[in-house]
Structures are given as structure tokens and as C-alpha cells.
């Protein structure tokens, strides 16, 4: 094993180009587990801790440019207003110690369906900026996840920045685990209201081979909200609409049975979380009409 320590982004890209099998390590919260448990012996470890630009974030007009190594602690403490869904998701990540090291880049790189950030990114709307010595490209989040623990990265590419839409309405995030802290998702659900476009976006975690959006549920809800004039009249969403939305969210799942939960439970729980997060966000929207931080 070799340990590569690039001091800059350019050096990191050059190293990755030279050694495409090199495994990037930033927070280490995935990679080191695999090494400690002898699941993985990469030829090269590519340490990204010295690459400063990965630790920067900036809130622009439309988007937040989030460096791949910005930690979950920073996101939940400093980006609650801009990225409420992701901030809530960050708060559910493992433990304080892990949140102090891990960042969204790692979640994306590992691309586990159980990664906590994915549903929030899907719901908010995001693009992943990846780069290699050949140049950079933006991958829409919906196209980023290509299979179980697989993503759209080329072997020579590294994740640089995640461009996430700034919240234009309330966002929520829920995750089921079988413990009240420090737990991997059995399944998770993210929901964002986008009043500017009068749309709702969702994200489901750990209930399909990849993180997915519940697109039919979104389309149904978008139509129902439009039809009922809900965006304007701010009325309470009717139970039947909420139920239909929840059922469609459940139907969007394609889960498996594993030690953490049954497929049946995952479908069931995603439906409950869809209904609840819709209720919470809509309540926030009705009461203020504006962007709100997550309530929890």
C-alpha cells in the first residue's frame, strides 16, 4: 500500500490520473473501517485532507457550493438556513466524532444506498462537480447513483464540489434506525418544498439499490397542490392527498430484506415518513410561506 499526500487539488488530480485505482480518503469514516476490518487493501490511499478547497463552502444566489470535505458538523451548524434538509440529514449521521470528520463527498464517493446525505441532496436538487486532469464536469444528482455502491465517476475523477440549490421553502428529513443515535439508516426520506417552482422533490435512502426520488409521488403531489390551489390558499393538505402521496412514496421503493430490516417494513416506513415530512414542511410553509430551518 502507498500513501499519497497531495498538497493541492492539482496534485490530487495528477495523482489520481497516475493511479486510477487509488482510493481517495478524506474523513476516513468509510475507508478506514474497510481497512481495519480487512475488507479492502487498496494499492494506493489518496489523502485529501491537505486539499484546502475541498473544505470550503460558499452560499451564492442560487446554489451553495459545498466542498466535498466540508464536515457534517459544519453543515448542521452553519448551513441550516441555506440547506435545511441536508443539515437535518447531517445531524442523523453516526456520532459527533464521525460528523466532525465525514463530509458529503464521502457519502457520494461510497454511494451506499444508506448514505444519509443522498435523500436530502435528491430532494433539494444538486449537481456534483467532478474533475480529472482531463477537465471537470457537472453530474446532476439524479444521474449520479448508478448501482449499489456505484456512481458515475470515472476512475481518474475526484469529487470536488456539490452544488446544492439553496432552499426556497421548507425542507425535512427523517431516517429510521433501530437505535436512537449512532445508527445506519434502515431507510430514510427527504422532502423539499420548492415554492418558487411550485414543486415538491423527494429522496429515498436505503430502500432501493440506489438512492432514488419518488417521482410518481412528486408528480401526483405537484398536480394535487396545483389543482387545489394549495400553494396560494395555504390550506391544510387533505388526508387523502397525503395518503396517496405516502402510498406512492412507498411504491417507489425497491428494497431488500437484510439484517437491518425487512423490505416490507422499509416500504411501510417510507410511507409514514413521507406523510409526516410533508405535514411538517407544509405546516411550516403555511405558517410563514418562507424558508425555514428544520424544526429539529
Amino acid at each position: 500500500m502507498d500513501f499519497l499526500r497531495p498538497a493541492s487539488w492539482e496534485e490530487a488530480l495528477a495523482a489520481k490520473a497516475e493511479h486510477p485505482t487509488a482510493v481517495p480518503i478524506a474523513g476516513g469514516t468509510d475507508v478506514m473501517v474497510e481497512i481495519n476490518f480487512d475488507h479492502r487493501r487498496p494499492e494506493y490511499l489518496l489523502d485529501l485532507n491537505r486539499v484546502e478547497l475541498l473544505r470550503d463552502w460558499e452560499a451564492g444566489e442560487e446554489n451553495v457550493r459545498l466542498g466535498a470535505s466540508v464536515t457534517y458538523t459544519q453543515i448542521m451548524e452553519q448551513l441550516r438556513a441555506e440547506l435545511p434538509g441536508l443539515a437535518l440529514a447531517s445531524h442523523t449521521v453516526a456520532s459527533p466524532q464521525i460528523r466532525n470528520r465525514g463530509g458529503v463527498g464521502g457519502n457520494l464517493g461510497t454511494a451506499s444506498p444508506a448514505g444519509d446525505a443522498h435523500p436530502a441532496l435528491l430532494a433539494a436538487g444538486a449537481e456534483v462537480e467532478v474533475e480529472s486532469v482531463r477537465g471537470s464536469r457537472f453530474i446532476p444528482i439524479d444521474e449520479f447513483y448508478t448501482g449499489v455502491k456505484r456512481n458515475a465517476l470515472q476512475p481518474d475523477e475526484l469529487i470536488k464540489t456539490v452544488h446544492i440549490k439553496k432552499a426556497d421553502g421548507p425542507q425535512q428529513y427523517s431516517k429510521v434506525g433501530t437505535r436512537n443515535a449512532m445508527v445506519i439508516a434502515v431507510c430514510a426520506f427527504g422532502l423539499a418544498l420548492h415554492p418558487e417552482t411550485r414543486t415538491v422533490r423527494t429522496g429515498i435512502g436505503s430502500a432501493a439499490p440506489t438512492p432514488v426520488r419518488a417521482k410518481e409521488a412528486e408528480e401526483f403531489l405537484n398536480a394535487a397542490l396545483e389543482e387545489g390551489g394549495f400553494w396560494d390558499n395555504g390550506k391544510i393538505i387533505t388526508p387523502s392527498i397525503a395518503k396517496q402521496f405516502a402510498d406512492l412514496a412507498s411504491a417507489a421503493c425497491n428494497p431488500i430484506d437484510d439484517v437491518r430490516g425487512t423490505a416490507r417494513y422499509r416500504r411501510h416506513a417510507v410511507g409514514i415518513m413521507a406523510r409526516r415530512t410533508l405535514g411538517w414542511t407544509w405546516e411550516q410553509y403555511r405558517s410563514t410561506g418562507a424558508t425555514l430551518e428544520g424544526a429539529a
Binding site: I25, G28, V31, M32, V33, N36, I98, R101
Partner: peptide
């Protein structure tokens, strides 16, 4: 546990509490 699930190895790294089992020595 050596997998970041117990906190027994917690140290301050540049002031920040982290699981030292998940920090590569080279980092």
C-alpha cells in the same frame, strides 16, 4: 471497535474530537 461505532478511541485532532481509529496515520 475500530469502526467508529463506540468512541473509545476519541482524541482531539486539531482541537476537534474524532475517532482516532478512522484517521489514517498519514493524515
Amino acid at each position: 471497535c475500530e469502526q467508529g461505532e463506540c468512541g473509545s478511541c476519541t482524541v482531539r485532532l486539531d482541537g476537534v474530537p474524532v475517532c482516532s481509529c478512522l484517521v489514517a496515520a498519514g493524515q
